[in-house]
Design a protein around this nucleic acid. Structure first.
Length: 311
DNA sequence: AATCCACCCAACCGCACATGA
DNA sequence: TTCATGTGCGGTTGGGTGGAT
């Protein structure tokens, strides 16, 4: 007997979510919490399978998500953690508050992989792509550098892999990080306390080196949280707020969500996720559920919170 | 202006695992 | 212990977008 599919695919909608669907899902979860995803679409009035609802919520709608490009600090942590954990994206994501496994996985595949390859590092093993000897460096495997790249590659590898014996490191040896996995509490504490404002010391020091050694920092402009200017509600209007992260043409719900409470005001997490109260989202829901509502009247919070870094 | 192409990322798919009857 | 069910996870896809020609 085969396994029952997660949903009856006949008649169910697929593809990008619409604003209306987002509203329904948000409204339902805020009223009922996260439980029994299979029942969610039916109860919420959505023609989606439960799995799709769960993914939409966890990867996009969840209010505690941090949007936008990963900072250099976060990127470095991803590399470090990947060196130890491999493609266990959810584990990696658990060390980066506000980031989803999907987001990190995508960022890895689209940005970090390329950077590592460009630096002559195998993104899978975190080791040099080619055997480097003292008198000859095989340049066939690597992308042709702009200038003196082989030397630069060696420098980069040294910077990223200070503990590494380039010629003889065993594959299973952690090559980059000094973070010890068994010290998860430290990692979490570092993340919770520092990711927003600064990097953990060991990461930060490495990043300084990386910055000075061509780690493609130009590709990803870094905006620290403290540099984010939160527009005054009197100055910020929906028409002037860009939503660079909202690549889906149908998904502009995050523009609306920026009127949610600030992160500091969020309720404590419990075993069911964040312990949201409907009142926490009242102003947002007013807006989401009433197309005629005046956005400006709902601007209650003008302090920084996650989505505003994208303004 | 039109077309092509590469890139990005939200979403999907299928398998693995956890749980409870 | 077995089986059904729900959920989590990682790999992959494909549509949208922007730059190049």
């Amino acid at each position: 007997m085969g396994r029952q599919p997660c949903c009856d695919k006949v008649g169910l909608k697929k593809g990008p979510w619409t604003t209306d669907e987002d509203k329904k899902l948000i409204n339902f979860i805020l009223n009922n919490g996260q439980c029994c995803w299979r029942a969610v679409p039916k109860l919420a009035g959505l023609l989606r399978c439960g799995k799709s609802c769960r993914l939409r919520w966890t990867n996009y709608l969840r209010p505690d998500l941090k949007r936008g490009l990963l900072s250099e600090c976060e990127e470095k942590m991803v590399i470090d953690l990947h060196a130890q954990l491999g493609n266990r994206w959810s584990k990696i994501a658990s060390h980066l508050p506000g980031r989803t496994d999907n987001e990190i996985k995508n960022h890895w595949n689209t940005h970090i992989k390329k950077k590592l390859k460009k630096m002559g590092i195998d993104p899978v093993t975190h080791k040099p792509l080619s055997t480097i000897t003292n008198d000859k460096i095989s340049s066939n495997i690597l992308e042709k550098p702009e200038n003196n790249q082989p030397i630069q590659q060696e420098k980069n590898q040294e910077m990223l892999m200070p503990q590494m014996d380039v010629e003889s490191s065993p594959v299973d040896q952690s090559t980059i990080t000094e973070i010890k996995l068994e010290d998860d509490d430290n990692i979490n504490n570092n993340n919770n306390n520092n990711t927003e404002k600064s990097c953990p010391n060991n990461v930060e020091s490495t990043i300084v080196e990386v910055n000075n050694n061509g780690f493609c920092t130009d590709d990803v402009p870094l905006i620290e949280p403290h540099e984010i200017l939160v527009p005054n509600s009197q100055e910020s209007t929906p028409s002037t707020s860009s939503s660079s992260f909202s690549s889906s043409s149908s998904s502009n719900i995050l523009d609306d969500l920026k009127f949610l409470p600030s992160f500091d005001e969020w309720p404590m997490e419990n075993n069911m996720g964040f312990d949201w109260e409907i009142n926490d989202f009242s102003s947002t829901l007013d807006f989401l559920l009433d197309d005629d509502s005046d956005m400006m009247n709902n601007v209650t919070y003008d302090e920084s919170w996650k989505f505003e870094q994208l303004l």
